[in-house]
């Protein structure tokens, strides 16, 4: 680190024009004052003042540009018959034909239907669980006990999907604990891990185990933000525990709930890739093929790059439209949504 006297030596000359006089006694004016100050001045003086901030931002922006935005351009191969030996520049253009193939590809539609069924199923059977769990956790009064339980239920969120699927296999697989117990008691063993009929239950159970606990964190924060005087006033007026839950707690959670619902709806075409990638072989394509695994197996593995890029583009654009629609609906219902109307 630089020596402390470095501070005094390099006197700043870039303070810029003096800010407008402060309005005393109003909180929040500091930031606004800073903004007003910041926008004054010529480009050069602003650069002199802000070059260090720019320099700090460059690496992150560079990485995002390279790994998020450059690949977007790579989507042009969806309109080509791309071959890696020829390169993007010289691969022949084929217009929309990849998309036409896709529209008549039954396996693509099967994957889409699987994806949407899983999303819908989890919307009903997974999505409300973090709220219930958060309300339950919030009612634990002893702070240390509560912290302990929170610590335990958050934890599986940090395990990899490989690990989660492995744990489930050890519990419910053909050689797992459940089958073992059943066999010990004279029943025939079960193998839930390879049964396509119950696959949707299995993946939902895995998701619940991994993420329902972590999902409570945002609802717990929203619960903590509810004014306790509301509860007191209601109780004094004779509202029962359940009425307080209905009239104070749930309305207090509504904005967060709607926000997460929008995000989930906008993300309807993503059900998580690794979870399905890992289990597709065991239960088979019919039940476990989702859009992301479709892209991987149909294209990356077979080298049909352009076809896969077309599928990815369709999925990306559809996802974008979904998120914009969901947000629009939220605005219509008077909620804030993910971005503000401006």
């Amino acid at each position: 680190m630089a020596a402390p006297d470095h501070l005094a030596v390099e006197r700043s000359t870039d303070a810029g024009p003096a800010g407008s006089p402060a309005v005393p006694g109003r909180p929040g004016t500091t930031r606004r004052r800073a903004q007003e100050r910041a926008k004054h001045g010529s480009l050069r003086s602003r650069f002199r003042r802000d070059w260090q901030l720019l320099l700090m931002t460059v690496p992150a922006i560079g990485l995002l540009l390279l790994f998020h935005y450059v690949p977007l351009l790579g989507n042009v191969i969806a309109f080509q018959d791309y071959s890696p030996y020829v390169g993007i520049k010289d691969s022949p253009w084929v217009g929309m034909s990849n998309f036409q193939w896709l529209m008549f590809d039954e396996s693509f539609w099967d994957a889409t239907i699987n994806t949407l069924s899983i999303t819908t199923f989890q919307l009903i059977f997974y999505f409300p669980l973090p709220i219930l769990l958060a309300i339950l956790l919030d009612s634990v009064v002893r702070p240390r006990l509560r912290l302990f339980i929170q610590g335990i239920v958050y934890m599986p969120h940090f395990f990899s999907w490989v690990l989660v699927v492995t744990l489930f296999q050890q519990m419910f697989g053909g050689a797992g604990l459940l089958a073992q117990i059943l066999r010990d008691h004279g029943f025939s063993g079960v193998d839930i891990m390879t049964n396509p009929d119950t696959f949707i239950l299995l993946v939902t159970a895995e998701t619940v185990w991994k993420d329902a606990g972590w999902g409570t964190i945002i609802f717990l924060a929203a619960l903590a933000a509810i004014n306790p005087h509301l509860y007191e006033a209601a109780a004094v007026d004779g509202a029962s525990r359940w009425r307080r839950l209905w009239h104070i707690t749930l309305p207090g959670l509504r904005p967060v709930f709607v926000l997460l619902l929008i995000l989930r709806l906008g993300d309807a075409l993503n059900v998580g890739f690794e979870q399905f990638f890992l289990q597709r072989d065991a239960v088979g394509r019919d039940a476990a093929e989702v859009l992301d695994t479709f892209m991987y197996w149909r294209t990356l593995l077979t080298g049909e790059w352009s076809y896969g890029a077309a599928a990815g583009l369709v999925k990306g654009v559809a996802g974008l439209i979904l998120i914009l629609i969901a947000n629009k609906v939220a605005h219509r219902f008077g909620e804030q949504g993910i971005y503000k109307r401006s």
Partner: peptide, 28 residues
Amino acid sequence: GSLLHRPMLFLVLLTFLFGPGMIPSYLL
């Protein structure tokens, strides 16, 4: 209010709306 603050922030936030896509990422 700092120089290029808004466009750079926009660039970051926009990545929330779409992923780069599996196949183009692989090619990159």
